[in-house]
């Protein structure tokens, strides 16, 4: 009897879990289906989770879009450069901050300074004015330097470092290792899951952000991919301002559901590719850094 109810409960649980997982995939599948469907079928709303009148024409069209690839390149550049900067800054900050205030008297001042910048901001316009007066508009640095200090990641890694046994430190000191050696030869090798986690966060963060690209990049050639997609998919409403016959002509040619879907799918690809490799680390990475007993 008990076994019987257990079986029913089990199948119920498995069903719910499987359904939730499908629900998570549904929008992505829908975008994929749209991107491989014929334009007419998509406009008529005939597409569900499987392509209708399968065609590669949308992808072929993307191939001809120079700006898609340019902004793809900008995004890659940004992820690599920004990822490296984030990584270095995070590691260098997390290590001294993981020391107790007794060992490192300035520690709490730095901590408060950092948290204050995380919690309080001067607003968009002063922020823009600062970057603009540094002559960084339209430069890749504007996308990577203002976000160079990922405070959340620093805290995560700092908490992880705190969990590393003090004895390791002391042993290293005995052998004459200074802070730099200890950090790079002892702390880093033991923190792979946390490193992977903060790297994934910084890659995803850089890849996904559109707002700074929109505000700080003055030329289309310098847009990261998400900015390009945001402008393309979501704000073709601009036609209201360009009631010019020729404009209308061109714009009616580029408004296209399946093409947008193809671009959306392509822009998800890099994340989908790196995600499985880093996924096995980040669960332990987050947990060790966030939940402390």
């Amino acid at each position: 009897m008990v076994k019987e109810t257990n079986k029913i409960a089990d199948s119920g649980i498995y069903l719910i879990l499987a359904f939730s997982a499908l629900l998570c995939l549904a929008p992505i599948l829908y975008a994929v289906a749209l991107s491989f469907s014929d334009k007419a079928a998509a406009n008529a709303g005939l597409v569900y989770f499987w392509p209708v009148d399968f065609t590669l024409s949308s992808y072929k069209e993307v191939l001809g879009d120079r700006f898609f690839f340019i902004s793809f390149g900008v995004s890659v550049q940004r992820v690599v450069l920004g990822g490296i900067i984030n990584f270095l800054v995070t590691v260098l900050m997390a290590y001294p901050l993981s020391k107790s205030a007794r060992l490192f008297p300035g520690r709490n001042a730095y901590m408060w300074y950092m948290v204050f910048t995380m919690l309080f901001s001067g607003g968009l316009i002063p922020w823009y004015m600062t970057i603009s007066s540094l002559k960084m508009l339209d430069s890749i640095w504007a996308l990577v330097l203002p976000t160079a200090v990922p405070v959340f990641s620093v805290i995560l890694l700092m908490n992880f470092f705190r969990g590393i046994p003090k004895e390791l430190d002391e042993a290293a000191n005995m052998d004459g290792a200074g802070p730099w050696q200890t950090l790079f030869h002892i702390y880093l090798p033991t923190s792979v899951p946390s490193m992977a986690t903060i790297t994934l966060f910084s890659i995803v963060g850089h890849w996904n952000s559109f707002f700074d690209g929109m505000i700080l990049m003055n030329h289309k050639e310098n847009w990261p991919l998400q900015t390009y997609i945001q402008q393309l998919v979501l704000s073709l409403s601009s036609i209201m301002n360009t009631t010019d016959p020729e404009e209308i002509k061109r714009l009616s040619a580029i408004s296209n559901r399946t093409l947008s879907a193809a671009k959306v799918v392509l822009s998800m690809l890099p994340i989908l590719c790196i995600y499985p490799f880093l996924q096995r680390y980040f669960v332990s990475g987050i947990v060790l850094g966030a939940v402390k007993e």
Partner: peptide, 24 residues
């Protein structure tokens, strides 16, 4: 020499507003 050009009307308006706000 182009200082900025964006295609979307709203986005262009923002660029101009930001340029005005920062007096540049």
């Amino acid at each position: 020499q182009y200082d900025f050009s964006v295609e979307d009307g709203e986005a262009y308006k923002q660029k101009v507003n930001l340029a005005i706000a920062s007096s540049q």
